[in-house]
Design a binder for these strands. Sequence first.
DNA 1: GAGTGGTCTAGACCACCAC
DNA 2: TGGTGGTCTAGACCACTCC
Lengths: 241, 241
Amino acid sequence: MIRAVPSRRNSIADDLRRQITAGHLKPGERLPSEAKLAAHYTVSTPTLRNALALLQGEGLVEKIHGSGNFVRHPRRRTTYTGGRPSAWTTPPAPLRSTVHARHLRAHSPLTTLLNVAPGTPLTEVLCITHEDRSPHSLSRIYIPRDLAPPKLPALADMATHLTELPSPLAEVRETARSRLPTHEEATTLRISASLAVLSITRVAIDTTGRVVEAALLVYPGDRADALFITNYPPEERPPSP
Amino acid sequence: MIRAVPSRRNSIADDLRRQITAGHLKPGERLPSEAKLAAHYTVSTPTLRNALALLQGEGLVEKIHGSGNFVRHPRRRTTYTGGRPSAWTTPPAPLRSTVHARHLRAHSPLTTLLNVAPGTPLTEVLCITHEDRSPHSLSRIYIPRDLAPPKLPALADMATHLTELPSPLAEVRETARSRLPTHEEATTLRISASLAVLSITRVAIDTTGRVVEAALLVYPGDRADALFITNYPPEERPPSP
DNA sequence: GAGTGGTCTAGACCACCAC
DNA sequence: TGGTGGTCTAGACCACTCC
């Protein structure tokens, strides 16, 4: 049974949401200050802030400390396509990537992910995609250093790289999880701490069983889906259990 | 730059979290009332409730209106495996399913999902898996009625069914999304409204291009991952772009 | 420095649950 | 009916941003 919840904060959120979706409040526009909104709706500031928190969780409003609440630009919803290592991936049309690479040595979570000994040299590529100037997604990609180009590369340079592996690619395993962002992720992606993210851990394995790439991908839930396609060619259709 | 956030609610949440993970507070146990906890930490009730809200979002604490805050039983983390229609799926060992089936006719979101005309007869199977007595996941499965058993079946009966399709299965497409639960989902799954869920939309297509099954799956983020495996057999290794 | 949001207080009153 | 959580008020004081 669904209980109707006619709380003050819900009706305020509904009203603001209607104004945003109807276009009376335009993307990028600043809302009146919380004090003014509270006065307008004749509620206390905590109640008004609760209403705004709902809209932040939906990705409709962005709060910037010290300057105000802003209507978010509606995000293009992009689709992450499963089954491909980074080298075969380019960000969809309107997005641009910022890439930073660095050297490091494998430690605790990475050792199990890449199945390497602690201290193994790795190359990390940190990649943030942007739509206009606002962040869209966050990727951390780890490659055994002997497979990475000797100079820390731009991601574009990597595109040609994974195809030159000593052994060909055999398998890609992806684990998708839904969770709230860490404090760090929320600030880099400039999203509310209550906006859920899709976290994908991807591992690419070559025919020798070696992990040639591991990737930790984070997509804010309001702007990305992940698509996975499984084909059953006639000769290898699995039996029923 | 990451800013340290040493707020009162964070330190309280940290303290309670430590007590839970260390086992001083045991699963199923009721926490002291919010008033008592507030007195113990010498904070106001809203502040204490904020601390509890953090733990709810992590799935560590379950709040039951009128009776108290309880330490959740730690959930077994299950793994949803992609690429399979319902008929090939059985819930992992400790879980049991409650199944309800009903007839209905296709309407707005289902018509596009199943690619059928409005009013097409469908069979809906609503499936809730449980671990002990607490809900674990929620599935809604839609099948064209001529492919479903004439009597509304238990899901177990369906297992043999999809293998008897007029045309063999050709493709499974799965879209994964991260979001907060709807009010309805939060109450049926007995989770906090701030615990993110993994929502998977799965469509199975046979060799004639017909959609033989569509499924809407909801997994609370604290207790399920989804795993997708893509194999590249030697003869069909895709080229680099 | 003026204006904004971030956090917190110390209550009030209502809704739900178990006895 | 008594205890619990749910919602809300009307402030206070601090931290951040921008001029």
